[in-house]
């Protein structure tokens, strides 16, 4: 039995990085050679090393977003060679290792690009639009302490599993970055579906989907044209079938709220 040992041959690459001093500044690509790259290094560790080199030389290091470095916090957000989170499948940028590259590669590193995600500096973008969408309806209104016993609300295992699939979204924004139209449909679909699949989420189901879609539209995202670039780059492999589900939920909510009798309590309607 031959053990699979990684080749530890060090190699060189060139990073072609988008540098932009601030939100209003003009940006441009700058090339940084990186030698002695260890294939076991993570891509972000390579940026760490390049940054230390820049610092010592008296240059400003590349600003980039990162935190947990294990693919769950959703902070890291580079577009690498045109693909959000780089060449891997089902991983975030922080889970990309240099063994995915070869000697002499020129690696283009850009921020996630969308009008709704303005660039703050270099590779760092502002994804607050996602928070706004969540604030519009991405919750179940249950005051702390007001909850019934957890087993008082049975949830079919299939629904719970599917809700978990949707809930695994890390809010990184790669779906938006990958979409040819910078649409946030996969993100919104995942959130709406998580709650919509659970019995706890039913009372606010219509209100939620209408409010979240409206907020999404106001944030300046593009429209879904069913090309599924989003799910292709999703680090959690969330399926675009949730988008179909969102479409259905939305139209149902639209008609349901519209043709409901109007309550004397006011409100009602869509």
């Amino acid at each position: 039995m031959v053990a699979e040992k990684p080749s530890k041959k060090l190699f060189s690459v060139t990073l072609r990085v988008w540098r932009q001093a601030g939100p209003a500044a003009a940006g441009k690509f700058v090339e940084y050679p990186a030698a002695n790259v260890n294939p076991d290094m993570s891509f972000l560790e390579l940026i760490d090393v390049v940054n230390d080199g820049l610092t010592v030389k008296g240059d400003e290091p590349i600003a980039f977003a990162h935190d947990c470095r294990e693919g769950i916090c959703g902070t890291c957000s580079c577009t690498i060679n045109g693909k959000p989170h780089g060449p891997g499948h089902g991983i975030a940028t922080c889970q990309l290792y240099m063994r995915s590259f070869q000697e002499g590669d020129v690696i283009t590193v850009e921020p996630f690009r969308a009008k709704a995600f303005p660039i703050q500096r270099d590779l760092v973008t502002d994804r607050a639009a996602f928070d706004k969408i969540q604030q519009a309806g991405g919750f179940i209104s249950v005051r702390t302490g007001a909850a019934p016993d957890a087993n008082a609300i049975p949830v079919p295992k299939e629904d719970a599993d599917l809700a978990m699939d949707a809930a695994s979204c890390i809010g990184c924004g790669a779906c938006v970055a990958a979409c040819k139209n910078a649409s946030a449909m996969l993100f919104v679909a995942a959130k709406v579906s998580q709650f919509g699949l659970l019995p706890q989420g039913q009372p606010e189901r219509d209100r939620r989907v209408l409010a979240m879609v409206q907020t999404m539209d106001e944030a300046g995202f593009g429209n879904c044209t069913n090309q599924y670039e989003c799910s292709a780059v999703c680090p959690k492999n969330i399926t675009h079938d949730f988008i179909a589900r969102l479409n259905r939920d939305y139209v149902a909510a639209l008609f349901r709220t519209r043709f409901q009798p109007v309550s004397n309590a006011g409100g009602g309607g869509g």
């Binding site: 702390t144 302490g145 909850a147 957890a150 609300i153 079919p156 809700a163 809930a167 998580q194 659970l198």
Partner: peptide
């Protein structure tokens, strides 16, 4: 015990058995 109640009510998709219980 209150935490589990609270989180389940919030829509945290805890693992379930086929009967729908946690």
């Amino acid at each position: 015990v209150n935490i589990i109640d609270q989180c389940a009510a919030q829509g945290v998709p805890f693992a379930r058995e086929y009967g729908g219980l946690l």
